[in-house]
């Protein structure tokens, strides 16, 4: 695949680096906020997988759609959801993206095409083909991207959605973030095929496997799949091999894997990889990187301050937003 990599502009590289680092710094702070009990509930961190969300979303238009997973912070940030609203949502404040009604597993911003993180494994795929059907019917040219993990490969919704999308030639890209584990269970114990891209052939669509720790490679593959969808040629299954550095959820003791395995994957870190490439190409200096990092950390700090200072929802707000009209 490397031979066909299109040279990406410096601006795009800088933007992708910034997005990945924003996800990383935001989530590191979420980890801290959770540990210190200011963020409650179930928290699933995306750290280590940033190249997938950013590689995909850097090729999307603002009005394109994505459906996400319970590990959704990265997809939200990559699609443009504001950090202030996200942190306030995690705090459960009324200024949160979802007014404190969704929390980590349900952050959504429909106006940005972000159709929701989702607490149900595999549930986003049918929603994505529906968004793609809507786009096709309205002739709007919008594309839908369904993010899911290898854990969803064996849900009926995966197979049903792949079949329907291919049958109806829908403008959708299925993105399997293969982090090697369905919750605590390694992929070799839960999926019948060694290479998930094989499953694309069952539905007569291209299956592309890509290094999910390399944002340039993801972006290249994504650009091709998205272009194919947009011109009406139907769906693609992209399998991005990646790794989550943290546990399945915050508090997971991770007894199902060795520390050395995690450390080995960290050597392929997507942020360091892009930074290394850009440094070699002379497109970013150490000073520029430090400044970028500092400004992101300030942005995250601002989001925490905003969340902390925001008001709690009034108890009677529990009754709002169930129905549009009654």
């Amino acid at each position: 695949m490397s031979g066909s990599i299109v040279l990406q502009s410096r601006e795009k590289q800088v933007a992708m680096l910034r997005k990945m680092l924003t996800i990383r710094r935001f989530e590191e702070r979420v980890k801290k906020e959770f540990a210190e009990t200011r963020v409650k509930g179930f928290v699933h961190l995306y750290i280590g997988e940033e190249a997938v969300a950013v590689g995909l979303c850097s090729n999307l238009q603002k009005d394109d759609y994505v459906t996400s997973t319970h590990r959704g912070h990265g997809h939200c940030i990559a699609k443009g959801v504001e950090l202030r609203g996200m942190m306030a949502e995690l705090y459960g404040k009324r200024t949160g993206t979802c007014k404190g009604k969704g929390g980590s597993m349900h952050i959504a911003d429909v106006e940005l095409g972000m159709l929701g993180a989702n607490g149900i494994v595999g549930a986003g795929l049918p929603l994505a083909i529906g968004a793609a059907l809507s786009s096709k019917y309205r002739k709007s040219g919008q594309v839908a991207v369904a993010f899911f993990s290898d854990g969803a490969l064996n849900q009926g919704t995966f197979h049903e959605s792949m079949n329907i999308a291919s049958l109806w030639k829908l403008p959708v890209v299925f993105v399997c973030e293969n982090n090697g584990f369905g919750e605590a269970t390694p992929i070799r114990f839960h999926t019948s095929v060694k290479d998930p891209t094989i499953r694309a052939s069952s539905y007569d669509m291209p299956g592309v496997r890509v290094d999910g720790m390399d944002v340039m490679a993801v972006s290249q593959a994504a650009a091709e799949a998205i272009a194919r969808a947009r011109r009406g040629d139907g769906p693609t299954l992209l399998v991005c091999d990646t790794y989550r550095y943290m546990g399945h959820f915050e508090g997971d003791e991770q007894k199902y894997r060795k520390k050395e395995e995690t450390e080995e994957w960290k050597l392929k870190d997507p942020i360091l990889k892009l930074k290394g490439l850009m440094t070699r190409e002379g497109s970013i200096s150490e000073k520029e990187y430090s400044e970028m990092d500092a400004s992101i950390l300030a942005e995250v700090e601002d989001a925490v301050t905003f969340a902390d200072k925001s008001a709690w929802p009034a108890p009677n707000e529990v009754l709002e937003d169930v129905y549009t009209s009654i």
């Binding site: 759609y65 968004a131 059907l133 049903e160």
Partner: peptide, 26 residues
């Protein structure tokens, strides 16, 4: 045909597609 859609026997798939289409303007 584009308004009257024949589906496979995939209730999760096509019902979910209905939800996704409803969330996006149809």
């Amino acid at each position: 045909d584009d308004r009257v859609i024949d589906t496979p026997i995939s209730e999760s798939g096509f019902l979910g597609a209905g939800v996704g289409a409803a969330a996006t303007g149809l």
